[in-house]
Design a protein around this nucleic acid. Structure first.
Lengths: 109, 109
DNA sequence: TTTTAATATTGCAATATTACGATAAAGATG
DNA sequence: CATCTTTATCGTAATATTGCAATATTAAAA
């Protein structure tokens, strides 16, 4: 019907899916890559980095924040964003585990 | 407008986003985890593993296939699915690189 | 050849996402 | 205080996703 049946999946599965979903848009990948590149808190500049209007960027930032991937701190009349190190590393482990749990199948139909 | 402005982002960013998007649903995470667990080709059983109707599962399988994460081979009157090892490892590297490129910030606003 | 089994496709309804103009909010600056 | 700057929120339109019943497809089995 349009709404995901999240109740029928494990918390684990829903969490992984939620992070992946948050990363599932090129604008949000671009934001993350920018924050990783400058490796510090960034105020103003994010909107200028993207080919999107300010309200749209603000919306993407909120989604990344809700997923726990980034954090924003009020600094005067602007807001500084950066990667949320704690959750970033935690999520990195989750994905690492997921991808690493594949054992090359030698024989397959 | 509803449609992502993919044209304005790099191929790199769109690819990462596309994989993340494919993994951005608990049912698809569940399918992937199941395939990783059994570590072989699986015909029939995927529908039974999920709390979803057969057409819905078929749709999720198609999305995972289109993203390149899994592959399906016709085997008699059924179809065997498994992780696509080549692309799986490639995507694993992409995510590993993304998550590893974070250097812990000691001082942040 | 009819039936059965497994999977895909179609069509549709409900909901979510994406994008942006307009506007609000909140602090800085003159 | 008036204004500017920066960011968030609201409202809304366009499009995408999710889910399933009904149906089609394909090959095995009887």
């Amino acid at each position: 019907m349009g709404a995901s049946k999240t109740d029928f999946f494990s918390a684990d599965q829903n969490e992984l899916a939620a992070i992946a979903k948050a990363l599932g848009h090129p604008a949000r990948i671009a934001i993350i890559q920018h924050l990783l590149k400058v490796n510090s808190c960034v105020c103003n500049s994010i909107v200028d980095e993207l080919p999107l209007a300010q309200p749209t960027v603000s919306q993407h930032l909120r989604e990344l924040k809700q997923a726990g991937l980034i954090q924003g701190t009020v600094e005067g009349n602007s807001i500084c964003y950066c990667i949320n190190g704690e959750t970033w590393n935690k999520f990195g482990e989750l994905f690492k585990t997921l991808f690493a749990s594949y054992k090359q199948i030698t024989k397959c139909c």
